[in-house]
């Protein structure tokens, strides 16, 4: 079953637009949603949650259309945005008591077990929580109302390496029994190298690629050659950088001719993003 099925979303703003954004997330898996700042990650996420109106396209969550089942589906979605805060001066306890009445399936037992697991003290004020604690509090809330799909916008940004690692561990534990699916956006690609099952890459409002992670990476090669070899391969490269030792460039695996005496390696997500973004720049 698809936890999330997005087809041809279009949304036009004055100076930016989402163009035919489509991707699918299988239930029980983690998808990393990557792209540079301003590429359209948050706009896409807001569109999914109907926090912004789309011009056209279809959003289905767990086999139900969002536009006809929004209230019902929102019971099953947990979302968190990096930059939207709660009332800072309230205690966790006070906030939770307000929030829980919106959810039919709220479970106090689950809630307290997550508070304990995440080391959250319900008598603390939101203002006293660290960035990592706030994300965990969001997760605790989502999981306590039985959310099956977690949509998280930059949950790891602003976290130190230890807190990030800790959060990624939690993500993996959550999907372990195959019931919960997670879509999270990030520009810290190392977060995804390990734990994400699928990668969706958006650039300038368009999906460049959405695929199973290893397939995604395997579609590209990073090539390293001598300066005089550049002309042989230049036209096939997505983009390249020159230095005094030669050049480094990114190429689609299918375009790479292994008979050329040029060294190729498997790139990481960051390299793919950097070279693809460089290509966009070249067109402007």
């Amino acid at each position: 079953m698809l936890a999330l099925d997005i087809r041809n979303i279009n949304k036009k703003y004055e100076d930016f637009q989402l163009k035919d954004v489509s991707f699918q997330l299988e239930k029980g898996y983690i998808m990393g949603f990557i792209g540079a700042n301003g590429a359209g990650k948050t706009t896409t996420i807001k569109s999914i949650l109907n926090l912004t109106r789309i011009d056209s396209g279809e959003i289905r969550i767990m086999d139900k259309a969002m536009h006809t089942h929004e209230l019902e589906l929102k019971q099953e979605i947990g979302s968190a945005f990096g930059d939207i805060n709660f009332y800072m001066r309230n205690k966790i306890k006070t906030l939770t008591n307000v929030i829980k009445i919106f959810y039919h399936n709220w479970n106090d037992e689950t809630y307290y077990s997550y508070l304990k697991k995440f080391n959250l003290n319900e008598n603390k004020k939101i203002a006293e929580l660290s960035t990592g604690m706030k994300v965990k509090y969001r997760l605790a809330l989502a999981l306590s109302h039985g959310a099956k799909l977690l949509i998280l916008d930059e949950p790891t940004s602003g976290l130190d390496p230890v807190a990030r690692d800790n959060l990624l561990d939690i993500f993996q534990e959550l999907v372990e029994d195959g019931e919960i699916s997670i879509l999270f956006s990030t520009h810290i690609t190392s977060d995804l190298e390990k734990c994400a099952d699928y990668i969706t890459y958006i650039d300038n409002g368009r999906i460049i690629n959405s695929a199973e992670k290893e397939e995604f990476i395997d579609a590209y090669r990073l090539v390293n050659g001598k300066a005089e070899q550049l002309d042989l391969i230049k036209n096939d490269l997505i983009s390249y950088k020159k230095n005094s030792f030669g050049f480094t460039g990114l190429i689609h695996t299918q375009d790479f001719d292994p008979s050329l005496d040029i060294k190729s390696t498997i790139p990481n997500l960051e390299e793919i993003m950097i070279y693809c973004a460089k290509k966009e720049d070249a067109h402007v």
Binding site: I30, E176, D177, G178, K194, Y198, E212, K213, E214
Partner: peptide
């Protein structure tokens, strides 16, 4: 598979493959 993925800190599909 899913348990191994969590423990090894790799994706589920990686272990599956």
């Amino acid at each position: 598979i899913r348990q191994a993925a969590t423990e090894l800190r790799v994706s589920i599909i990686t272990v599956k493959k």
